[in-house]
Structures are given as C-alpha cells and as structure tokens.
Amino acid sequence: MTASITVEGLEVVFDRFRALKGVSLEVSEGESYGLVGESGSGKSTLLRAITGLAPVSAGTVTVNGKTLGKTRDKAFYREVQMVFQDPYGSLHPRQTVDRLLQEPLAIHGIADGEKRIERALDEVGLGKGFRFRYAHQLSGGQRQRVAIARALILEPSILLLDEPTSALDASVQAEVLNLLEEVRRRRKLTFLMVSHDLAIITHMCERLMVMQNGEAVETLTASQLIGHRVSEDYTRNLLRASEGFVRA
C-alpha cells in the first residue's frame, strides 16, 4: 500500500501560539483516517495546514509522493479538496448552486461543465431542481450535499472532512455520512476526517489518531477503540466521556 498523505513533524504557529507541535501521520491510499480530540486540540488546524490555509513553520507534507512547498499549485487542488464544518458558512450567499459548481471548472479550465455539474448534483442526491437555487433556499443537509458536490467536481483523490456533520441534526447526519461512504467506495477516495464524535469516527474510519493540545496522543485502529484496547489515559477519559453521555 502506498501512502497518500504523509505528514512529518508538522508545526503551526499563530502569532506565538503553537497550534501544532510536531505532528506526524501517514494515510494510505484509499484509507479512511480519523482525527479525534477535544476542541482546540489542533485537528482542524492539521487539515488547514495540509491545504495551505494555516501557516506551516516546520515539517513536511507529502501528497501522492510529492512533497509540498510553501505554496500550493493548481494541480494540488485537483488532488485534494475539503468539506467544511459549517454548511451555513461555506456557500457564497449571492451565488446559485450552478455558479458555485461552475467556479472550480472555470478556474481549472475544464470544458464539459454542463455534464459535470449535472453528474455532480446527481451523485450527491440532489436533482436538477436544485441547480439554480441560492444557498438560503436550501436546508442544512442540502447545503452540505452541495459542498460535497463542489469538492468532488474536480475529481480529487483525497477528501479532507472537517467535522462534516456536526452542524446537522441526527437524521440528516446519517444521510450525509452514508453519502460520503458511498462516494468513497465508488471513487476509491482517501478520507482524512476530523470529528469529536467517537461513534462517527469508528463508523467511518479504519484508523485514527487521538490528539490533545496540538500533539498526537496515540494512533489506534477502529477495532482497538471499540474494544477499549487503548494505552493512554487521555484516550480512556475520552471514551468514558462519550459513553457517559450515552448512558445518561
């Protein structure tokens, strides 16, 4: 198995705050990898650092065998796309779905736009009826589907998911997660998924990394997490916290 994403000793510093303190991880091709931790543990920052949205001060990121420099080129964005946490904030308020989906195609000079847009909307379970709507005419789940369609339209091989369902209510959450599963299977995508919900991570991911205060605590497989075969106290606490919530 070849590595899709390799991160080594990644450091991110905002002003003087070290948001990431030398984190390393390796995601294989076609794998679904989870990042878990409390808020502020640096999991979203890690995703943003990979995409170039957060300032990297040390360490390297390698995607599909290419080590990335300070800036990302267009080819990188055709390989890696991201779905944001809040579907209410990630769609431009003055653009129709059509316009949103056209933008990446225009930037990359892709010709068969019409067909791609229709296919992308079909793929995420939105029909043609949604094509000319504005964001405010869509529900939260529909918005997140549009965001997923936008990420998929460039046909990337890696999808970064930043808590893609935490802003949605439970039934819609399941729909969106199933959609993501299906898309991954069909397109053989690599997922790197952030969540604070252990149930979602064990459902979606094969391996995961627990993070705290910008550092990796430990790396587990999903079955280890389910069987509570963990070695760090922090992970144990995290597990207990999530279960306590269920029983109460």
Binding site: K74, F84, Q85, H92, E103, L154
Partner: peptide, 13 residues
C-alpha cells in the same frame, strides 16, 4: 475569512 472564500481559495483561484 469566511469559509466560502476559503473554499474558493481551495479551488486554486
């Protein structure tokens, strides 16, 4: 700094 501008940045605009 909104996500929808970030999303366009992530398309390589």
């Amino acid at each position: 700094n909104s996500d929808y501008i970030k999303a366009v940045q992530l398309m390589g605009a």
